[in-house]
Amino acid sequence: MSAHGFGRPIAPEILKAAQRGQPDALKRFYSHFADAVLRLCSGMLGSAEDGRDLTQDIFIKAFACLADIKQPLAVGGWLKQLSVRLALDTLRQRNRQQLLSDDESDNIGDQSWNSAIDSLTRLDDVERIMAVLSEQQRVLVWLYAVEGYSHQQLAELLQLSEQNVRQQYRRALTKLATQLKQGEL
């Protein structure tokens, strides 16, 4: 939970003052977590502009629910969960989630992985390769590889079976590796 600063503890007095709605404390709360929320949103949505809009939504929601927080140490985790949930809701509302078709292959050999690793290391703009993924695949990759969610946690979050999540994640990686290997990007 420490990725991108969600795990940074916030001073209890700031949290208490923010829970009372004091403007200065709300701004300090925001400053403490804003970068982490913005990166997560931009990463999951694949757009910095959408990430900024969603960050505002998340903090408005968070400020309204702050009074429910009893443990200052749990705030980061709570805010991360809230951010992920709202990002998923945003994606669902856009109705742009696509499932992988069954005919996509999820097996490539070690040689191909080596080649993909080399290409990824040399790649200037990693976001260019991420564009080949569907939004659901992007979410899986972001939450697993960047935010440190496990397959089991992702399965609960996305209401899928763990096996399905594993398979989809593998397919997403295979898709990226295949594209890199083919040098299409």
Partner: peptide, 13 residues
């Protein structure tokens, strides 16, 4: 991939 994505997303509020 995780490392590259983390490095690519250093947006600040």
């Amino acid at each position: 991939l995780g490392q590259r994505l983390t490095a690519a997303h250093q947006e600040t509020a």
